[in-house]
Structure formats: structure tokens, C-alpha cells
């Protein structure tokens, strides 16, 4: 079991960091505004996976006291990152919706989505 846990350690943290880096790369290099917002939402997903993975406990159960499960407090996973991520997902949707509406408004005004043609916003 220990060997598998080592593999999962590398795999889960590695893929969470990789998702963050991919999203950041897309937001930094792409010219299309929709691609930039998409990259930021991928970055969000990576951060959520990272926080849930920190709270995980080996052979843990979900933090719910169902019937017959009242005494198993020590094997429950950490509920606090789950509450934080629950908040963060909903807020992330609000942020994405506002960003998309700004993109639509910019397109209506400038008639393009390429950020280097709008106002030299990109370096």
C-alpha cells in the first residue's frame, strides 16, 4: 500500500501543479480573450484539486456521520478544505460569468477578440 501511496503522491500533486501551469501558460501566451478566460478557469481547477488532495487521509471516509458511523471520527478526511473549495467553486463561476460578459462587451465595441489589436494590452 505504501508504494501505491507514493505513486499517488507524485501523480496527484504533480497533475494539480501541471494543471495550474497549463492554465497560466494559456492565460499568458494566447491572444484570444476567450482563451485567456478559459486558461484562468483551468488554473482554478488545479487549485481546487490541490486543496482537496491536501485534506485527504489514507483509508479515510467522507466527513458525514451516517448511522452506525458515529464513532469513526479519527479516520475522517479533513472537512475544512472541502468547505473552502465549495465556496471557491461557486465564486469562480461568478468571476467567469462577469469576465465573459466583459469579453462580449469588448467584442461589441472593438469588433475583435484579439487582445493585441484592441489596445496593445499584451506585451
Amino acid at each position: 500500500m505504501e508504494k501505491y501511496l507514493d505513486i499517488l503522491n507524485v501523480a496527484i500533486y504533480g497533475s494539480a501543479v501541471l494543471l495550474m501551469l497549463i492554465g497560466l501558460y494559456g492565460a499568458l501566451t494566447k491572444k484570444s480573450l476567450i482563451k485567456i478566460v478559459l486558461g484562468l478557469s483551468i488554473l482554478d481547477s488545479g487549485v481546487h484539486l490541490l486543496m482537496i488532495a491536501i485534506g485527504y487521509l489514507k483509508d479515510g471516509t467522507a466527513p458525514i456521520f451516517s448511522a452506525g458511523n458515529e464513532e469513526k471520527m479519527s479516520v475522517m478526511v479533513d472537512p475544512i478544505p472541502q468547505a473552502l473549495v465549495l465556496t471557491a467553486i461557486v465564486i469562480g463561476f461568478g468571476v467567469t460569468a462577469v469576465a465573459i460578459s466583459l469579453v462580449i462587451r469588448l467584442y461589441r465595441h472593438h469588433n475583435t477578440l484579439r487582445i493585441d489589436e484592441i489596445k496593445k494590452l499584451k506585451w
Partner: peptide
Amino acid sequence: ILQAPDVALTEAAIGVALTTIIFIIAI
């Protein structure tokens, strides 16, 4: 799999349905 069913419900409803449809409308 990581024992977080609450977060999984939220992600399935928001990430799969609502975010995708908002992007598609923008496109």
C-alpha cells in the same frame, strides 16, 4: 475518489453544465 462528495456535486453541476454553456453562448 478523494472522499469529497459535496465538492463533487458542486463541480458536476457548475463546472460541467453552467460554465460550459456560458462559454458557448459567448462563442
